[in-house]
């Protein structure tokens, strides 16, 4: 009976989640290092359909520099978009969207190899909204929470490479 009470107390204690706070991180403190030779304009989390964007790192990161540490609630697996000022690579996919008299024409260039993080150039013009010109790369990263360090670099093929530590 004595042990039962003790057991019930322990169960209650662990259920109050006093314990899980000790070993579970609910936020990720992210720092990005730019090892490419172009400026990174920012890092965002984007929705899978690409229509919703939540910025994470808002400040530009010069080549060879590190960003500030920004803490956000992103713990899990998310699609990350890194925006560049320009890109000096050869395999560059371009997504163009040209709106003429409300008819939409799209041009997709799928030079980039599938499944690898690569750099895209997106151009939207004359669609009634703000014109968009963006050079960016997308990848899916697994944030475990706590302090995480993302290195963005360029490999010899001219592709962008991400390394999350």
């Amino acid at each position: 009976m004595k042990y039962l009470r003790l057991f019930l107390c322990l169960v209650t204690l662990s259920l109050t989640a006093c314990m899980s706070h000790v070993f579970i991180d609910t936020t990720t403190r992210l720092q990005v290092e730019n090892k490419t030779d172009v400026t990174i304009l920012g890092l965002d989390i984007i929705s899978e359909d690409g229509t919703s964007v939540q910025s994470w790192i808002r400040d530009a990161i010069e080549p060879g520099e590190k960003s500030k540490v920004v803490e956000e609630d992103w713990v899990g697996t998310f699609k990350v978009r890194v925006r560049f000022e320009k890109w000096n690579g050869k395999s560059l996919a371009s997504i163009g969207k040209l709106c003429v008299y409300s008819s939409v024409s799209r041009v997709y260039n799928t030079l980039a190899k599938q499944g690898e993080p690569n750099v895209f150039e997106k151009e939207v013009k004359g669609c009634g909204e703000e014109d968009v010109h963006m050079i960016y790369s997308e990848t899916t990263l697994d944030f475990e929470g706590g302090s995480q360090y993302l290195v963005v670099s360029q490999d010899e093929d001219g592709n962008v490479a991400f390394k999350l530590k």
Partner: peptide
């Protein structure tokens, strides 16, 4: 029991 949002999968 993670959460599936439009951004991905959240731990929790």
């Amino acid at each position: 029991l993670q959460l599936k949002s439009k951004y991905g999968v959240h731990d929790g």
